[in-house]
């Protein structure tokens, strides 16, 4: 029995390595020869990389009493979506793009609600405006889920808008787009045909199985596994018919320290796959070939980021910027309280 560290700190939501076996079928898409593939560097053709991420936050849980005496749940929430725009060759400074917060009043029920405006307490602190958004069901966590959904939707729209189109035609030599989007988490429906790569920091699902996972340990920094293909939500029961398919491959960003699990420093990338194809389109292949070099360049250092190296340098900066864009949670809570007190009570409670 060996004890090894999960690379990530215990206060993150999950560890990096869970490795639940994937129940569905995984196909070799690129090659049947299961061996490490070195990176080919970043071609000059690719000029622009956008790292897209989003961040939700609940700011207050609400209970709504209607005239009929019914009660329903709601919440004030906020989310931000943004991108870091950088040149993969380092020819210009990285810039934040479109980092701005949206505020949502998520509620269940059928009665439409008005926009809630929290007027500023002094001219510098700005107006808070919660747009109403109804969600179905009456679960307590519905509001949180609604905010999350809105964020993902915005994130996906942003990725799709920013990324170049990616022709999924095998033979096209010039398939590599000049703008690539790296999106936090798996790719989502609606992004097909765009140069969007989802990067999954955690290895929660094991798509490889016991006989193949050994290669991940053997990968050297920058090397990747061959591209695989699987069907989303395939639980091995044949119910996944008609679901979208994904290409996926693994990349090692850095050597694992000896005290950590040997899979530390590995992350999984994901792209859309056309329906039931047995080949890897040229564009996807090119992106997979450059991914090792690109991610090694973006990988963070353990002394700067506890989730290193998977939490990329631009991602960490983006998360910080997004947190700032939403404002201080204590301040917002206080303003919500003051707002409600001002509406219902005799005096404003600050």
């Amino acid at each position: 029995m060996r004890i090894r560290l999960d690379p990530w700190p215990v206060d993150t939501q999950d560890g990096q390595l869970t490795l639940k076996p994937f129940a569905g079928l995984v196909f070799n898409a690129e090659t049947d020869h299961w061996a490490a593939i070195p990176t080919r560097g970043i071609p000059h053709r690719m000029r622009r990389l956008l790292v897209v991420d989003g961040k939700p936050r609940m700011e207050a849980r609400l209970l709504l009493d209607d005239e009929a005496g019914g009660m329903s749940v709601a919440g004030f929430g906020a989310f931000v979506v943004g991108a870091v725009d950088l040149c993969p060759h380092g020819s210009r400074q990285a810039q934040l793009q479109g980092v701005s917060a949206s505020r949502v009043l998520a509620y269940s029920g059928d009665t439409p609600l008005e926009v809630t405006r929290l007027s500023p307490r002094n001219p510098h602190s700005g107006l808070l405006e919660y747009q109403p958004h109804a969600f179905a069901g009456a679960q307590v966590e519905g509001a949180r889920a609604a905010v999350q959904t809105l964020m993902l939707r915005r994130e996906q729209a942003m990725s799709a808008e920013l990324a170049s189109p990616l022709p999924l035609d095998e033979t096209d030599v010039d398939a590599l787009p000049d703008t690539l989007v790296l999106q936090d988490g798996p790719v989502r429906p609606g992004e097909a045909g765009r140069a969007v790569v989802g990067y999954v920091k955690t290895l929660h699902t094991d798509y490889l199985g016991a006989d193949r996972i050994g290669l991940l340990t053997a990968l050297r920094p920058g090397e990747r596994t061959p591209v695989l293909r699987f069907k989303l939500g395939d639980r091995g029961e044949g119910t996944g018919e008609g679901r979208e398919q994904r290409f996926t491959w693994y990349v090692r960003l850095c050597d694992a320290p000896f005290y950590q699990h040997p899979l530390a420093g590995v992350m999984r990338l994901e792209m859309h796959a056309p329906e039931d194809t047995d080949f890897v389109p040229r564009g996807v292949q090119d992106i997979a070939d450059l991914s090792g070099a690109l991610l090694c360049r973006l990988a963070s250092q353990p002394h700067k980021d506890p989730r290193a190296p998977q939490n990329l340098i631009p991602t960490a900066a983006l998360e910080q910027a997004m947190g700032r864009a939403m404002g201080s949670p204590e301040m917002v809570t206080r303003r919500i309280r003051a707002h409600l007190a001002g509406q219902y009570g005799p005096r404003v409670v600050a």
């Binding site: 950088l86 340098i313 983006l318």
Partner: peptide, 14 residues
């Protein structure tokens, strides 16, 4: 402090 290198390399927005 060392982030300046990442900023100049165009990786880190600052």
């Amino acid at each position: 402090d060392s982030d300046v290198a990442d900023v100049v390399a165009g990786l880190l927005p600052a």
